[in-house]
Design a protein around this nucleic acid. Structure first.
Lengths: 205, 205
DNA sequence: ACCTGAACACCGTTCAAGT
DNA sequence: ACCTGAACACCGTTCAAGT
């Protein structure tokens, strides 16, 4: 049994039953082998999960565009990170286990920073814009993933979650929030992109 | 045994041993009572953890300033959310279990949105700026908390973590990222505030 | 009315034993 | 060289039994 088929099987178990229900015993059952056989390839269950997370973070980086529009290329980068994470909603929160400076982020980070540079931004500003984009994307996407994950765990794989930032406070107590609530978009992707554009608002050129 | 002392004890166990080591049996041992006694007050271990998380999210909202500088007040709001979460680094990632529209966020959200309104921003823009600030803060703070938590689990309570976005890629492979890496601040709070200011950059007035 | 603790159905991981 | 499976030290939660 190769490391690759083991990871593929683990991802399948995670996606169908949820990361919470993933266990070495469950994986052993899925692969018809002893639960302890996996320790040949991964020192620990967490090491296996880290490898799965890294593969998701790296997913699709080879296809990132380098057009003549740096802003569009950056948008594509983070939009695709969001989509890769949402493809595995119960696994997504585990990205926090991987520091954002780890190898799995390098290509993606280099692409984003290169576009900021190309748009004429100096390194200090580029660093700030980059970190803001990254952490905003993680915060938004992980919040969305948790809601999706709840739906998956209840209704099984392929369920749809609701809007990520829906707020229904009592209007008497929280008037300002109530005014704004209707503008928190139903469409999570549109809301997400609006935040990216806000951060990229005055990108040079 | 009241619900309050139970939560206080649970928080103490979480902070000293890490949320990963928290269990009903550990809490029972700490309180010198049967591990199943807690089920009188909380239906489930997760319900107990959710209550802890809500108390952290609500922490300090009563003290949020309303000065004559809306931008400073908003900064104070999210800076304080960051600090409350970092005070319990191993618990912090569990905020993702609470949708950001839940009651624990209401006062805090209302305060932030009120300041945006006060600064002359229309509701649609305020909604976008608010959600961007919130998810950026969550992403940045949870990433930082994870590193702190790793240090706590290794060295015990009170340990210090390193910079949240430290990146050391091989310069030949990732030249742009390497240019920018030195500008990713050592000081996590300064880096965090720089991102807030970026998002709030052209707040009216 | 409240607490107890045995019991059930699980965990991750180790390691001696097999092939 | 690789897999197996018994065993260890844990889990969350339920429920009959105690007080």
């Amino acid at each position: 049994m190769s490391r690759e088929v083991l990871m593929a099987a683990a991802m399948e178990v995670v996606d169908t039953n949820g990361a919470g229900a993933f266990s070495m015993r469950a994986l052993g059952g899925f692969l018809d082998c002893d639960p302890t056989a996996m320790y040949r390839h991964f020192a620990t269950k967490n090491a296996l999960l880290d490898a799965l997370v890294d593969s998701v973070v790296r997913d699709g980086v080879a296809d990132l565009p380098e057009s003549d529009d740096p802003r569009a290329d950056i948008r594509a980068n983070f939009r695709q990170l969001r989509r890769s994470l949402l493809a595995h909603p119960t696994l997504a929160p585990l990205v926090l286990r991987r520091p954002p400076g780890v190898g799995a982020y390098w290509e993606r980070s280099d692409h984003a920073v290169a576009q900021l540079h190309r748009a004429g931004m100096d390194p200090a500003d580029a660093a700030n814009v980059y970190q803001t984009l990254l952490f905003y994307t993680l915060g938004h996407t992980l919040s969305e993933a948790r809601q999706l994950a709840r739906a998956v765990e209840k209704e099984g794989a392929g369920a749809r979650g609701g809007p990520v930032a829906q707020v229904r406070p009592p209007a008497e107590l929280h008037p300002d929030l109530s005014d704004v609530a209707p503008h928190l978009r139903e469409d999570n992707e549109a809301q997400f992109l609006a935040g990216l554009d806000l951060i990229l608002r005055d990108l040079p050129r």
